[in-house]
């Protein structure tokens, strides 16, 4: 927790994917902080507690100086005398916050998140890994099923007129879009990553209608959802192509 908001970070046990979720303080009704605070929490316990809250309930998260638990108070909005309190004990993860050094990415594309979810799901049916290539003209996501020889490919061509699709965000356009493609393209880049982890990342589509994919050779793939209250980032380790 910092004066800007709350940053959550988690990594899977195989160290293939790191998730960062930033929630700005402006997304809270009130946000008070005396000093920066770093807590390690078992995500299962936190999720179990937060699921006890209904959509309209008010959740208050509290942790004191040198606290050993995060206290979550859940109250019903129109019945403020009804409050349930739950403690989530801290755990020792043996490490502090992880930082991925800021790197200049070679290429970035932004596409509809529902379309991205579909491609991740369909390519995952074919293979455990996929190749992503971004070249000047567009982007290509390819997976090969080595058993059957079947190859799946999704191609996104650079939108000629970026503004063309801006008025129709509710409808998925027939042609794929790549927003601001030209601004972020420096050189042709390709990466091979696990489809399983791309599927995980693509399931966050409800957060934002658009998702960005950022790449630099031999660096983790970055899948990023930007939304008003914050940002969700997935870093996925690159697989070195044979």
């Amino acid at each position: 927790c910092s004066k800007e908001g709350i940053m959550l970070q988690g990594m899977d046990e195989f160290h293939i994917s790191l998730v960062e979720f930033f929630l700005s303080k402006r997304s809270f009704e009130s946000y008070a902080l005396c000093h920066d605070l770093c807590m390690s929490l078992p995500i299962d316990s936190l999720a179990t507690v937060l699921k006890k809250a209904n959509d309209d309930d008010v959740c208050t998260l509290k942790a004191g100086h040198k606290a050993k638990v995060l206290t979550v108070a859940i109250e019903t909005r129109d019945q403020p005398w009804l409050v349930s309190k739950h403690d989530v004990p801290f755990i020792d993860l043996g490490s502090e916050y992880l930082v991925i050094s800021r790197i200049p990415y070679d290429a970035k594309i932004t596409v509809w998140s529902t379309r991205f979810a579909r491609l991740a799901h369909e390519l995952h049916q074919l293979s455990g890994s996929l190749d992503i290539q971004i070249i000047h003209e567009g982007a290509r996501f390819t997976a090969l099923d080595e058993g059957s020889g079947k190859k799946g490919c999704f191609i996104f061509r650079r939108a000629k007129v970026v503004d063309e699709y801006r008025d129709s965000e509710d409808d998925e356009p027939a042609g794929a879009i790549i927003h601001e493609f030209h601004r972020y393209f420096h050189k042709a880049t390709s990466l091979r990553v696990s489809t399983k982890y791309l599927v995980h990342a693509s399931k966050r589509a409800p957060l934002s209608s658009k998702v960005s994919v950022l790449m630099k050779e031999d660096q983790p793939l970055l899948v990023q959802y930007d939304f008003y209250e914050g940002v969700l980032k997935f870093y996925i380790a690159p697989r070195i192509a044979d």
Binding site: M11, H15, I16, Y97, L98, V99, S101, S194, Q219, R239
Partner: peptide
């Protein structure tokens, strides 16, 4: 150290 298919080596600990 960077390992094939893993994120180890890409991070610094703050």
């Amino acid at each position: 150290m960077k390992q094939q298919g893993r994120l180890d080596g890409f991070f610094t600990v703050k």
